[in-house]
């Protein structure tokens, strides 16, 4: 437990020292939202509810892939070897997942805030929408962290990352769009228990698998 906490703290401190990477991620979200604002809202001055929702999730998906890709490549191979001797691989993956989860929550909420400022807030049940954001952040961070671990071993990390992660994220993304659509229609929590259960189930499976599979990745 202490090990995990220290590893998360280490990641946060590292992020804080190289602020350009973090600022880059924030700017990525903001400029993507602004692009959508210019191409949708300014041109036609109206956007359909479904397009609004899907567009938001696509933005979140791309910023997630973009920001989690670097979780294993920002540190040199030599330093990774050093961690390998200090910590258990299972605590390294858990620390990375938790750290990426916090990062995704931050980026997701920031993105949602900016998105609703520019494109208007169409979510009637705001809390359910935010819950779907949290569940999405958990699922994205868990599956993308392991895929980032796989992709970081190759020379073409960024390209491989997109190819490997998009098909894996599709089930969770389609469920998230469904859940957030319920939130937009202002349905109560009780009517979307099914979706919440399925998404949490997928999240759990993904976390458990990352936990079990990462030690094999770490060795190579």
């Amino acid at each position: 437990m202490r090990e995990i906490k220290n590893l998360i703290l280490k990641d946060i401190i590292l992020e804080w020292r190289q602020k350009y990477a973090f600022n880059g991620m924030v700017l990525y979200v903001v400029s993507t939202v602004f692009m959508c604002y210019i191409s949708f809202k300014l041109k036609t001055n109206s956007i359909e509810a479904i397009t609004w929702n899907t567009l938001f999730w696509i933005i979140i998906l791309f910023s997630a892939v973009n920001s989690i890709t670097k979780s294993f490549i920002q540190e040199k191979a030599g330093r990774q070897l050093y961690y390998y001797q200090l910590a258990k691989p299972s605590s390294i993956i858990l620390a990375k997942i938790i750290y990426n989860f916090l990062l995704m929550i931050f980026l997701g909420f920031l993105g949602f805030f900016i998105y609703s400022v520019f494109m208007g807030n169409k979510a009637e049940n705001l809390w359910l929408y935010l819950l779907s954001l949290v569940l999405g952040a958990l699922g994205f961070s868990a599956s993308l962290t392991l895929v980032a671990g796989i992709a970081s071993k190759s020379d073409n990390t960024a390209g491989l990352m997109a190819v490997l992660s998009f098909p894996i994220l599709l089930p969770i993304l389609s469920m998230l769009i469904k859940l957030s659509k319920n939130a937009m229609d202002g349905l109560a929590f009780s009517s979307s228990y099914d979706e919440i259960m399925v998404i949490s189930g997928i999240d759990l499976i993904v976390i458990a698998l990352s936990y079990m599979l990462f030690p094999f990745l770490w060795k190579s």
Binding site: I168, S210, L213
Partner: peptide
């Protein structure tokens, strides 16, 4: 090794779909 890890991971997230 890496493709075996991906195979297991992908299969598990493919099943719910």
């Amino acid at each position: 090794r890496l493709s075996a890890v991906y195979n297991i991971f992908a299969f598990a997230s493919f099943m719910p779909l």
